[in-house]
């Protein structure tokens, strides 16, 4: 057994342990109150077996469910946020988010294959400071697009975000243009970019790379919008429909290509990757 294989089997056993621990835990559905065993929930793509409610997923869980086994290779580990504006309690929030999620910041990037089709992938993690976008998120995604241009890879991006990260001030805003520039270069190189909008995708992320995909997919009932619902209500001074800013609403108004149920995502993405392969 080579060093790499040993390492892999070690990782697999670690994963099993992690799942065993989780198996005893019960998670209550926020919608219907049903108590599902964590293990069953994972088997069911984090969808409530009772009412069909979609749970928000961590970035790692999503990568495990979506990509071919052992195909994910993480890129740009070791980038962490800095409180360069000395914004009150930013450092504490970062610390708490890291200890809650085990992540360094709100996005995980790497390469992987889906149905044996290679791609570059980024997944935002709403459990990390509501996946707000600061320097680290902007830098990692920009690097990923630059990498994808160099290696001629399609990019698949799972978005979720409360928007730009206030604690990094205008520099967070600049990330929108920075990533957009990299997306533009990737697009000009004739490469495919698919975004999958997950709950919730809002603010500066909606107003930049979430909406720049060649193909824009969304999970059912995911919240997708620019301004917050409360803000819109104040501006409009009227009741908004229940499905306002939901994926279904966005589909109806022509802003996304398709809504794909979570269990089908892997297959649909794989099909799309095959469809965009250039014949040699």
């Amino acid at each position: 057994m080579g060093v790499l294989d040993k390492f892999k089997s070690k990782m697999d056993s670690l994963k099993n342990t992690y799942q065993k621990i989780d198996a005893s835990v019960k998670i209550t559905c926020k919608k219907c109150g049903y108590e599902a065993k964590a293990y069953d929930l994972i088997e069911n793509f984090y969808i409530c077996p009772e009412c069909g409610n979609y749970y928000r997923m961590g970035a790692r869980d999503r990568i495990n469910l979506l990509t071919d086994k052992n195909s994910f290779k993480e890129l740009y580990k070791g980038l962490t946020s800095k409180n360069f504006l000395e914004f009150p309690s930013y450092q504490d929030k970062l610390k708490k988010a890291t200890s809650d999620t085990g992540e360094e910041d709100a996005v995980v990037c790497g390469t992987a294959s889906i149905g044996e089709n290679p791609c570059a992938i980024f997944v935002m993690d709403s459990k990390f400071m509501m996946a707000s976008m600061g320097s680290v998120v902007g830098e990692k995604i920009t690097r990923l697009f630059e990498y994808a241009i160099e290696y001629k890879l399609p990019v698949i991006g799972f978005t979720a975000s409360g928007g730009a990260r206030m604690q990094e001030g205008v520099i967070s805003l600049m990330q929108m243009a920075k990533v957009s520039g990299a997306v533009k270069n990737h697009s000009n190189a004739g490469l495919l970019y698919i975004t999958v909008l997950t709950d919730p995708t809002t603010g500066g992320v909606t107003a930049s790379f979430a909406m720049q995909g060649d193909i824009i997919l969304a999970e059912p009932k995911a919240l997708v919008g620019f301004a917050g619902r409360r803000v819109v209500e104040q501006a409009t001074k009227s009741q908004l429909p229940d499905n306002f800013q939901k994926a279904e609403f966005m589909l109806e108004h022509g802003f996304i290509d398709a809504i794909i149920p979570r269990p089908e995502l892997s297959n649909v993405l794989s099909e799309l990757l095959i469809l965009h392969k250039r014949s040699v």
Partner: peptide
């Protein structure tokens, strides 16, 4: 800032800004 009304959301405020930024970069 960009208008935060229901009509603006319906007609894709996020998409309009995203496209503007991306096209400006190119």
């Amino acid at each position: 800032g960009a208008f935060a009304g229901a009509d603006a959301e319906e007609r894709g405020q996020g998409q309009a800004i995203a496209e503007s930024i991306m096209e400006m970069m190119g």
